[in-house]
């Protein structure tokens, strides 16, 4: 993968992670407050009302499933070492790839 491809992929992953967060926020509202609006404090299972079950255990399990999906279908494995800096693969004549700077060079202040 080139640096640009890696960056693109990371942006995709970050966006998907944010979407999962949004989904969990919406589900949290539906499971908890929605469940309470539906059946109130009436015990459903193990003496717990629907909203308490869905809003806590339910949300946790949903989060696990969503994160599993996220890491399996959106996230991709990539080498973390900067391969381009070590073995430049540019054609002769084209400018060399930009490299990381040395530490104390070119600071503005």
């Amino acid at each position: 993968m080139t640096r640009k491809e890696k960056y693109r992929q990371i942006c995709r992953e970050a966006r998907a992670t944010g979407l999962i967060l949004l989904a969990l926020i919406v589900l949290w509202c539906c499971f908890g407050f929605g469940g309470f609006a539906l059946t109130g404090a009436e015990p459903l299972l193990f003496g717990l009302p629907l909203w308490a079950l869905a809003g806590t255990l339910g949300l946790w399990l949903t989060a696990i499933v969503l994160v599993w999906g996220l890491t399996h279908f959106v996230f991709r494995d990539m080498p973390l070492e900067d391969s381009e800096a070590m073995t430049p693969t540019t054609a002769p004549g084209s400018p060399p790839p930009p490299r990381g700077r040395t530490k104390a060079e070119g600071r503005e202040d």
Partner: peptide, 10 residues
Amino acid sequence: VTAIFLVLGI
């Protein structure tokens, strides 16, 4: 439950 996957994912 969102705390860990968010920081690592983003």
